[in-house]
Design a binder for these strands. Structure first.
Length: 449
RNA sequence: GGAAAGGUGGCAGAGUGGUUGAAUGUACCUGACUCGAAAUCAGGCGUACGUGAAUAACGUAUCGAGGGUUCGAAUCCCUCCCUUUCCGCCA
């Protein structure tokens, strides 16, 4: 959510920045709503002030035992007028709120303007892609004989689900363990275990809702209300078949950024607790609506995948420092795994809704002969904090919005893909990266079953 | 899932229809006293929004959330959420 004050002060400048990231902001509609809001709010508050004053008079008069009838006549019709005005205010405020919640974050000045990923800027590369003296297979072909079982995944759930067995399943677990241990032991994050089902407010806080509902999996639970005896009789008598239901709506988290970041929702944290650094290994669920036909083979794009997430809640002055640090934390994982990668600064058009600046880490995939996204680290500045009302008490004791950052550290499934492809051998086996061997009971290779 | 109790300012804790944004205590800030500190005394001390040049002033909202009754609601009514305790069930 943007700062409403910024919208009021310099609407044109905000609209210009939004245009840079491909978002057309209807300033005419906004200006019109804002004018209406101002009118109605002034009117409503004037009426409220009047009501309060008269009610106070009545109270005073009554306590003195005076006759209140004359004062009462003054208030005739006021209630109705006020109700009408309050309703109109609520309506216009809801309209504006809807509009504002749908506006993406403003890009940081250092972000390259551009329409799509072709304008992303490569920042640096690390590691040299290995040369193979045999025909490289993609991860699906390497993994299949080792226990990567797409058929069973499809049977159980459908497309974009994977079943893993044996060494592959264990390697997958080893990768996650290694990442989590590195983030907690080397980089100072606190390990967390979080819910995978969250409520509406939580997703509103990090910006997935209300705009991107179609990307999420929804869980709806209908709990029948316990009908009283009277209602049961009524239902029986009328032959009605439907009971009253109370619906509980949950959403599966698309990333634990959601749960970790929302830990500070509606909180005012003391200054000295910053920065808050949290990490968690969780599954992530994405409907990937709108990605039909993309990466259909293999486990690049799944409805369910595991990720180790890093989140930092920081002082606004420190957020860009933290962004660089977090990119480093993600890079350290790839360095330890000795996987070649590059760091890319996303252009305005390729960034996510909540981000002011994003770096992607792209890992080398020999079978695709290209770098593919394996981590995304973003500074959301106060965008999420404002939605969440997440604040800290500043040097003067005043509440001020925190800045929030999140990043993958890393996507576990895609790391498995990268390991399978980069560490494959001519005989179909896969060498286990050194740092993962302790997590595999000292095993050095995955061999065909 | 059943039963009961409860959700009030940073914390503790009064308040059951009327000059209540809310007693009191505590924490915190300022001043006085002191060489300094403690203690004591005096004053101040929430948040959001609006009008506004303003971190001035004024107004509005806010006592878990939403709705209702009323001229007036922290207080009465309804719905929901959450917490605690006991019982049941369950991994």
């Amino acid at each position: 959510m943007l700062d409403i004050q910024d919208l009021r002060k310099d609407l044109a400048a905000v609209a210009e920045l939004l245009k840079k990231r491909g978002f057309t902001f209807d300033t005419t509609k906004y200006t019109e709503l804002e004018a209406r809001r101002k009118n109605i709010q002034t009117e409503t508050e004037t009426l409220q002030a009047k009501r309060n004053a008269i009610s106070k008079q009545i109270g005073m008069a009554k306590s003195k035992g005076e006759d209140v009838a004359p004062i009462m006549t003054e208030v005739v019709g006021l209630g109705e007028q006020l109700k009408k005005s309050e309703l109109a205010l609520m309506f216009v405020q809801t309209e504006m709120q809807k509009m504002i919640l749908g506006i993406p974050n403003l890009p940081h000045e250092s972000v390259q303007a551009g329409k799509d990923e072709t304008k992303n800027v490569e920042v640096r590369r690390w590691g040299a892609p290995r040369t193979f003296d045999f025909a490289v297979k993609d991860h699906a072909d390497v993994g299949a004989p080792l226990g990567l079982d797409f058929d069973t995944g499809a049977k159980l759930s459908g497309a974009r689900f994977t079943f893993m067995r044996g060494g592959i399943a264990k390697l997958h677990r080893a990768i996650a363990q290694f990442m989590l241990d590195t983030q907690t032991e080397q980089h100072g994050y606190e390990e967390c275990y979080t819910p995978y089902l969250v409520n509406y407010e939580t997703l509103l806080g990090t910006g997935q809702l209300p705009k991107f509902e179609e990307d999420l999996f929804k869980i709806k639970t209908d709990i029948p209300d316990d009908p009283t005896a009277g209602e049961v009789a009524e239902v029986a008598a009328t032959g009605a078949t439907s009971l009253q239901y109370r619906t509980k709506q949950f959403y599966l988290i698309p990333t634990s950024e959601v749960t970790l970041t929302n830990t500070v929702r509606d909180e005012i944290v003391p200054l000295d607790t910053l920065p808050i650094k949290l990490t968690a290994h969780t599954p992530c669920f994405r409907s990937e609506a709108g990605s039909y036909g993309k990466d259909t083979k293999g486990m690049i794009r799944q409805h369910q995948f595991d990720k180790v997430e890093m989140v930092q809640i920081v002082h606004p002055d420190k957020s860009y420092e933290a962004l660089e640090e977090m990119v480093g934390h993600a890079e350290n994982i790839l360095k330890a795994l000795e996987l070649p990668y590059r760091v890319v600064s996303l252009c305005t058009g390729d960034m996510g809704f909540s981000a002011a600046k994003t770096y992607d880490l792209e890992v080398w995939l020999p079978a695709q002969n290209t770098y593919r996204e394996i981590s995304s680290v973003s500074n959301c500045e106060a965008f999420q904090a404002r939605r969440m009302q997440a604040r800290f008490r500043n040097e003067n004791g005043k509440p001020e919005l925190v800045h929030t950052l999140n990043g993958s550290g890393l996507a576990v499934g895609r790391t498995l893909v990268a390991v399978l492809e980069n560490y494959q051998n001519a005989d179909g086996s896969v060498t286990i990266p050194k740092v993962l061997q302790p997590y595999m009971g000292g095993q050095e290779k995955l061999t065909i079953r």
